[in-house]
Design a binder for these strands. Sequence first.
DNA 1: CATACGTGGTC
DNA 2: TGACCAAGTAT
Length: 290
Amino acid sequence: MPAADVLLSWFDRTARDLPWRDPDCSGWGVLVSEIMLQQTPVSRVEPIWREWLARWPVPSALAASSQGEVVRAWGKLGYPRRALRLHEAAGVIAAEHGDVVPADIDTLLGLPGIGAYTARAVAAFAYGQRCPVVDTNVRRVVARAVHGAGDAGPPATTRDMADVAKLLPEQDAVAAKYSAALMELGALVCTARNPQCADCPVYDTCAWQLAGRPAYTGPVKAVQKFAGTDRQVRGRLLDVLRGATGPVTRGQLDAAWSEAGQRDRCLDSLLVDGLVEQTDSGLFALPGEH
DNA sequence: CATACGTGGTC
DNA sequence: TGACCAAGTAT
């Protein structure tokens, strides 16, 4: 993947106009977007992100709301523990960082829900730092364009970041934009299925293309089951609570799933996770909503 | 390192 | 139609 200029100019021409890419978007806006975008498509995140930033423009505002309100506002973005962790992170940012999202990667890594990807994404996209930002898109683009493979193998954070670090342009702001461009390329052109190689700005230098686009030969990726899993049951239970205005009876939750054993196990795990609380009278509610 | 963790769109 | 996929993190 040589010729950073080609990718950068392609990004200038075709990048989506996403609200968290506005130069005036705060670090908080960027952080909220990155958390929401973890395993969740842009199209589903954008409207919720707008609601959140309008309602909670700074971390302290979110921290002042109850966990239940936050989980409710998370809606059906999925993986609702993210909402709880973001709420907790907002409290730390408000209390210990002057209500400003930290720019230091190690400080960011210390916050709940922020891992190797998100910490660097915030450092790069909110603060213009030069650091490798490696998500699934970037891993796939590098696997193809640099290594000539059909797809990325299993994640190996240290090696993946070293791969990307070699590609980054020297200047901080340019490197940050380059990372965004790499992600955009993976999201729109160099996609997992049916990549649009004819529209690719780095077609001429892509190692995968030059090798004749060989099929992926690495280990088979585990398929994620959903139907019938605890994840589905937890989702159903939480959906009942989101749809209610206050605490509900165990009987109301019974309607969410027929098999009692699994239902009870999932309800217990939601209580353990803090996504559900039990009232003194034995009812169930979103945290803080009783 | 593998697995659990939501939800909905696409081919 | 059902498998695959979507800007990962925590354990």
